[in-house]
Design a protein around this nucleic acid. Structure first.
Lengths: 148, 148
DNA sequence: TCCATTTAGATGCGATTGCATGGAGTTGCC
DNA sequence: GGCAACTCCATGCAATCGCATCTAAATGGA
């Protein structure tokens, strides 16, 4: 078990950082250029929409997305201020609440998707064949799971 | 040329975001845990060290790293305040200056490397075979280059 | 030479992030 | 029931980011 990463490992690392930076930048840019909210809002809206009528608890969102708790709390503040979600008291647990998407939220999410999709296509789809994309997804999958 | 990204494309996108977030987080965490400066400092120190005795211009650094100009300017402020680089007037061009690494900078960079390397190894190396890492690097390479 | 344009870099300022902490409610154990 | 430990979420504060703008210096003509 060596400490010295192989050359290929270091290159993969460096390109992972760079490719993500580039891809994220272009997607955020596309959303901004279209006068739409940032990507993080999309994720919240999508999760809350999937969660259905009752919405979901912040801590569930926190796990679904990759966000620190304090960070999520304020992100929800902003989205709520924009009227796209609402916080409702939670009957089961007096500490928390439920975050539910509003009609305006559903609308904006649907407006965001085409822009988002086009940007993903430009950043990834047009640069890789279907097979390559599948391979990339599979390899990246190995970097995601738990093992400390 | 479709707008609708294929399933594999979307998955690759999502995992790219997630894998990078995870990998970056664990590297930053390792550095912080070791009481060392953040990753961005490493990159600056490495580039300035590579640049040799005279150092390099901020705009060169800006291109080598993936950083906005205003952002780099203040990053260098901080690293300079810590004593790891110094700004020297530039004879060729009165607008700019040269950023050169100091001895303290070289020292701290050398102290950072083992921690950084171990973290890369844990985040990437131990999860992928050499061949997989090479393939990942190659695929990510396609996402990096220019084409608008 | 003189002036408009461009380039290098810094900076004011509002928005976002990270960290540490706080308050409120719940749970487990006696 | 009573209390310590824990979970859920918010928030004060400092650091950092992003944007727009500013100054100074170089450049390119006419």
């Amino acid at each position: 078990m060596s400490d010295k990463p192989a050359e290929a490992t270091v290159q993969a690392w460096a390109r992972l950082m760079k490719a993500q930076h580039r891809a994220l930048g272009s997607v955020e840019g596309a959303l901004k250029a279209a006068g739409l909210p940032p990507l993080a809002w999309y994720d919240v809206l999508l999760e809350t929409e999937r969660a259905g009528k009752d919405g979901l608890r912040p801590f569930e969102l926190e796990r679904a997305m990759l966000l620190a708790q304090y960070n999520l709390s304020r992100l929800v503040d902003r989205i709520e201020a924009a009227g796209y979600v609402e916080r409702r008291p939670c009957v089961d647990d007096g500490r928390g609440h439920l975050i539910a998407i509003t009609d305006a939220g559903r609308t904006i999410r649907r407006r965001m998707w085409p822009v988002y999709a086009r940007a993903i296509e430009a950043a990834v789809g047009q640069r890789l064949s279907g097979k390559q994309a599948a391979t990339l997804g599979e390899l990246l999958g190995h970097l995601i799971d738990e093992p400390s």
